[in-house]
Amino acid sequence: MQRNPQLNAQGELQHLLSIEGLPREILGQILDTAESFVGVTEREVKKVPLLRGKSVFNLFFEPSTRTRTTFEIAAKRLSADVINLNIALSSQTKGESLLDTVANLSAMQADIFVVRHASSGAPFLIARHVKPHEHVVNAGDGRHAHPTQGLLDLYTIRHYKKDFSRLTVAIIGDVLHSRVARSLIQGLTTLGAPQVRVIAPQTLLPSGVEALGVKVFHDMRAGLRDCDVVVMLRLQNERMKGAMLPSAQEYFKNYGLTAEKLALAREDAIVMHPGPMNRGVEIDSSVADGPHSVILPQVTFGIAVRMAVMSIVAG
């Protein structure tokens, strides 16, 4: 059997490409390390010297504000030098291949590549071709995976709920196009969450989604009952143009999270959203800004989680 491409012969994390196939111990190590970094981010001097002298290249072949910015902040807080590449304006548009781009950056002494790409598997391709001292962190590839988002979701859940072993988690919305959902489901399963539900219309669910170990609901009210954690997914506006959904109003009526529907979940339920939010489409403002929402803490935790990932792969 082929070794997991993310791990070295000693089973240590070399690249973070996907949560899929990562052992529970590695997930635990990342979350524990992130917890220590949360302490660093609460200090006046929010920097540690771990990656001093290292270069982190942010390679974003697809637009992103939050993820790119939080990776940049994370790398800077580890004292790395950060180089942001806006690929849409670079050689790729002149026809350079992905691997040639990476080879050139490697010649500029890169240590970590943070890669976001519209094609599923692009970070895996890069990881197969980098030098032994270079590391790849997947910042979202196609519909496939977004492991650091999944990890920060897991971190947030653990922060508020302490333990995964009795949790019911509902993931609601466009699961079909969501790399976030896929990564989170894999992480929750690995960490032993007993019940993960997905709530969505049939048209927004991948076929065979049950194989991921989730329980499918089409009725949001039934699915929300007794949930500890509610994860809303962004409804990508472009989906609305296709034949997948009738209208934003109709979607909000059936699958939008309102205070009235949230009342069906547990009293101490938390509401998460990976952002960017469409208020009034998948989530009502009163919930997004309400007492159950942990959407902004998610962003803050995301920095610590990305610090943990980069310092573990590069160490």
Binding site: E12, Q29, T33, V40, P49, L50, S311, I312, G315
Partner: peptide, 17 residues
Amino acid sequence: FYRDDYHAQGLHHDPKR
């Protein structure tokens, strides 16, 4: 996070806060 052997040894597995 301040050890001088990070580049040789990697990060300690279970850092406390």
